[in-house]
Amino acid sequence: MRLRRQIVKIKELRAADQQELVELRSDQEALVRVVNQLTLENQQLTDPVPVVRILPTMPQPPVG
């Protein structure tokens, strides 16, 4: 009888472990998404702002 109780207890622990693994995998995916988003935002904030330069134009003769 003691062996049956141990088997039941082990099966319950295994089921709980499986559920915890499912939750951890889900949490890991969410954390990876957040880290990727924050990395992208950090890059955007630390990259120098591109300088827009106005190119000189040729003077046009007056129309008229």
Rank of each mutant, 00 (worst) to 15 (best):
A15E: 00
Q60Y: 09
L45F: 04
N42Y: 03
R5T: 11
Q60W: 11
L40V: 14
V22G: 06
M1T: 15
V22D: 02
P59W: 02
Q43L: 07
R14A: 11
V63N: 08
L38S: 06
R5K: 13
N36D: 14
L55H: 01
V35I: 09
L13Q: 13
T39S: 15
N42V: 12
L21C: 12
R25Y: 12
I54V: 03
L3R: 07
Q37W: 08
R2K: 10
V32Q: 11
R53G: 04
P62F: 10
L55E: 10
P56D: 07
T39Q: 13
T39P: 04
N36T: 12
L45C: 05
K9V: 07
I54R: 01
V22T: 15
P48N: 00
P56H: 10
V35S: 12
L21V: 08
M1Y: 02
E12Q: 11
N42A: 13
A16M: 03
I10G: 04
L21K: 15
P50I: 04
R33Y: 07
L31Y: 03
R53Q: 03
V8D: 02
I54M: 06
E12C: 01
M1N: 15
A15Q: 07
T57D: 05
R14H: 07
I10E: 06
K11T: 07
L13C: 05
Q6S: 13
R33H: 13
E29Q: 08
V8W: 05
E20D: 11
E23R: 13
T39R: 05
A30T: 04
L21Y: 03
V22H: 14
Q18L: 02
R53Y: 07
E41F: 02
S26C: 02
Q19A: 15
Q37L: 13
V34M: 06
T46S: 01
Q6M: 14
E23W: 08
E23F: 12
T39I: 08
G64A: 11
R53N: 04
Q43D: 00
E12V: 08
E29I: 08
V51S: 02
R53M: 03
R5V: 04
Q18V: 04
E20G: 08
R5L: 07
E12D: 01
P48Q: 00
V8N: 15
K9C: 09
R2L: 10
V34D: 15
I10Q: 08
A16S: 04
V52F: 05
R25I: 06
E41G: 05
V52K: 07
L31D: 12
V35Q: 14
L13G: 10
V49H: 01
V34N: 09
P48C: 00
Q60E: 12
S26Q: 13
E12N: 03
P56W: 03
P61T: 13
L55R: 00
V8Q: 10
I7D: 09
T57R: 14
M58G: 03
V52E: 00
Q6L: 12
Q37H: 12
E29S: 09
D27N: 11
E41S: 10
V63D: 06
T39E: 12
